[in-house]
Amino acid sequence: MSDWVEACAADDIDEEDVMRFDHAGRTFAIYRSPDDEYFATDGLCTHEKVHLADGLVMDDIIECPKHNGRFNYKTGAARGAPVCVNLKTYPVKVDAGKVLIQIG
């Protein structure tokens, strides 16, 4: 297992919102849920390679900005056409006001 990587400060992201995080040539999306938990997934939609962080978070769904494909960002599950391939998710923890993700 690789190390935990600091992605951002916990209050960089509004509740029910998402932020892009690039690290070592890869791109991720970090989410803060309406009930104030943090999650992380791959940054790009599985339909076409579009940054999900430009999309809209509603409850536990991230909607892709390009064609409105939907994923549950907590599980990565694809939730509606045109997306059919799930998103990869990553463990997240908040430590001293920082959001850390474990990049596998």
Binding site: H51, G55, L56
Partner: peptide, 11 residues
């Protein structure tokens, strides 16, 4: 440019 208007259009 890009997906600049996507979120607000969706809302």
């Amino acid at each position: 440019p890009g997906n600049a208007v996507a979120r607000d259009i969706r809302l």
